[in-house]
C-alpha cells in the first residue's frame, strides 16, 4: 500500500505555527476546491506555486516544505485567491506569515532586502517610496505646474510620530537585524511529478 499522509496523524491545530498572529482563523474550512489556484496569476505562469497545496501542507504541519522555496516569493499579494474563495480564507495573510518564517530561517532574505531600504527611508519621510533627490525634483516640478504645494503636505509632527511608531513596535530593531549575509539559497520545490513551467 502507498503510504499516505493524513491530517489526523499529526497534532491538532498545526497551522497555528504559521498563523502566529491569528489572522486566518478559518483555514480548516478549506474545501480544496482549487478556485484560488484557477484565479492565481502567478500559478498561471509558475504552476508549481499552488495555494491549495500550500494550505494543505500548512494544515498537515508541513509548512517547512515551502520555507526554502522560490515559489512563495512570487505571490503578488493580489488577493485573487481570497476574492474567489467560497469560504473567505484570507490566503494572503497566511502567505505573509509563511514569508516571516522563511526570513527567520534566512531563506529569501534577498527578496526582503530592497524593502528594508524602503522601510528605513519611509521611517524618516512618513511616506513610502519617496525617491532620492533627483526624483524629488521631478515631483516638485509636476506639483508646481499643478499649482499645489511642492511637496505632499506632511507635517514634521507626523514624520516624528511615524518614526516613533517604528521604534515602539520593535520594527526598527527588526529591520536593522535583516542582513543578506546570512542568506540561504532558495530553489523551486515541488518539481517531481508535477507540471512545472520552467
Amino acid at each position: 500500500m502507498m503510504p499516505r499522509e493524513k491530517y489526523k496523524d499529526k497534532a491538532e491545530n498545526l497551522y497555528k505555527q504559521v498563523d502566529a498572529y491569528n489572522l486566518v482563523e478559518n483555514l480548516e474550512t478549506c474545501l480544496a476546491c482549487g478556485k484560488c489556484v484557477g484565479n492565481c496569476p502567478v500559478a498561471s505562469l509558475n504552476p508549481s506555486y499552488n495555494p491549495r497545496q500550500i494550505i494543505s501542507d500548512v494544515m498537515s504541519g508541513e509548512a517547512r516544505r515551502w520555507l526554502d522555496s522560490e515559489e512563495i516569493w512570487r505571490c503578488f499579494w493580489c488577493a485573487g485567491c481570497y476574492t474567489v474563495c467560497p469560504n473567505d480564507i484570507h490566503f494572503p495573510l497566511l502567505m505573509m506569515q509563511i514569508r516571516y518564517m522563511a526570513v527567520e530561517n534566512n531563506w529569501g532574505l534577498k527578496y526582503i532586502m530592497p524593502f528594508k531600504r524602503f522601510a528605513l527611508r519611509a521611517r524618516e519621510d512618513g511616506l513610502t517610496f519617496a525617491p532620492s533627490e533627483k526624483g524629488r525634483e521631478k515631483i516638485k516640478r509636476y506639483r508646481r505646474n499643478l499649482g499645489v504645494s511642492e511637496w505632499p503636505e506632511i507635517s514634521a509632527k507626523a514624520q516624528a510620530e511615524y518614526k516613533e511608531l517604528f521604534d515602539l513596535t520593535g520594527t526598527t530593531e527588526f529591520l536593522e537585524k535583516l542582513s543578506d549575509e546570512a542568506e540561504r539559497p532558495v530553489r523551486f520545490k515541488y518539481l517531481e511529478g508535477r507540471i512545472v513551467g520552467e
Binding site: L23, P92, E153, S155, A158, Y162, T171
Partner: peptide, 26 residues
C-alpha cells in the same frame, strides 16, 4: 486633509518587510 496623517504602511507590511504591530498602530 491633515498634514499629521502618515503613510498607511500597508504596502511594506504585505511585502513581509515588517510585522503587523506597526501597521495596526499606524
Amino acid at each position: 486633509m491633515d498634514p499629521d496623517q502618515t503613510c498607511c504602511s500597508g504596502y511594506l507590511l504585505t511585502c513581509s518587510a515588517h510585522k503587523p504591530e506597526l501597521s495596526l498602530a499606524v
